[in-house]
Simulated scan of single mutants.
Amino acid sequence: MVENRPILTLLAHLVLILGVLTVAFPVWLAFVASTHEATAFTSGVIPLWPGTHGADTYATMLGQGMSTSGAPPLLRMMANSLVMALIIACGKIAISVTSAFAIVYFRFPFRNLAFWLIFITLMLPVEVRIVPTFKVVADLGLLNSYAGLTVPLIASATATFLFRQVFLTIPDELMEAARIDGAGPMKFFRDMLIPLSRTNIAALFVILFIYGWNQYLWPLLVTTDARFYTVVAGIKRMADVADAIPQWNFVMAAVMLAMLPPVAVVVFMQRLFVKGLVETEK
């Protein structure tokens, strides 16, 4: 039984408000910085209220970019990041769901060994195997291409494990009933397993989209052509200007705009995302 004490309710709300302010304050500072001139941040006094140069700053970033850093217009970099994030998210889900389907519903030699070999790759993130991966991508001629940006990041042991756990909760009687009705393996997969996994797919899509959008080190290594810059790597290039003070108003405008697509994905898929995380019964 939950006790109804006003003082505890007030304390809980104060903690939540404090947490929201702690998270939102840096975002507010980034927005304020994007509306002032670059010289406003060289005096050592940080303004806390928006300035009057916001429209010009955002229009410049979207239409022209920063010529001092070699960064193209932000729209081009955001489009590259969007393509990369969508390919990574959809590719990871497609490979993981089919891998989990094979591991759970097919009987073949060394089936469990195959799963554990996939699972062990969790201990080898991109940063650990980045040198040999870069060598392979370079030898295949995939530098400065969408394939080079996405293919090395598509496989996902985490998603395979999660789909395996979802499929293990589905009763065997459902598979037997589908078999009696004449459904083959792929029809059972397409018409039964995929609809039952819809919320889990949605939750994974949100996580994997943000994972792909926020990729920093790998795009920084495999792209030297401005046509394939992603927005996160582009922000790094904007902040690192030689023999000059970074134009923080443009950098913060890029940060604010780069935040919008992941936020939009989370907002529009929030219901399915939360349901996919907490749903335990099929």
Rank of each mutant, 00 (worst) to 15 (best):
A12N: 15
W248Y: 15
V126Q: 15
M61W: 03
F273E: 02
I103A: 04
F268T: 14
A79F: 13
V23Q: 09
G63Y: 08
M192L: 11
D172N: 12
L16Q: 14
G63N: 14
I170W: 03
V32L: 11
W213G: 01
I118C: 04
A253S: 11
I194F: 07
W248C: 00
G54R: 06
V128H: 08
P152E: 14
V166N: 03
M269H: 04
P109S: 07
S145L: 12
L174H: 06
L168T: 11
R227F: 01
G212K: 01
R129N: 08
F167A: 04
E176G: 00
Q270F: 08
A89C: 09
A264N: 05
F228Y: 12
F228C: 02
M123P: 00
A244I: 07
E281A: 08
S96N: 12
N214M: 11
W116G: 04
L257P: 00
F189I: 11
T150C: 15
F163R: 01
D243M: 07
V263S: 11
S156E: 10
R227A: 04
A33D: 00
V83A: 10
T121H: 08
L29P: 01
A147G: 08
P26R: 06
P185E: 15
P261F: 04
L260P: 03
Y58V: 06
P47S: 07
T57M: 09
S69W: 00
K282T: 13
R179N: 07
R198M: 13
L153S: 06
T39F: 12
I201D: 04
L86V: 15
N112W: 09
G65K: 02
Y216M: 14
V267D: 06
P185M: 15
Q215C: 08
L174P: 03
S156V: 03
V206R: 02
Q64N: 11
M186P: 00
A203K: 00
P73W: 04
T121R: 07
R271S: 13
I245V: 14
A254F: 02
R190Y: 06
F189V: 10
V126T: 14
V126C: 07
G276R: 01
T133P: 05
L140F: 14
A85H: 04
M259I: 08
N4G: 00
K275Y: 12
P50R: 12
Q247N: 13
L117Y: 10
V222Y: 01
I201S: 05
T9L: 13
G51Y: 06
P50D: 15
V128K: 08
G276A: 12
A12S: 15
F41C: 06
E173S: 12
I207N: 05
F115R: 07
R129M: 05
P132W: 08
L196S: 08
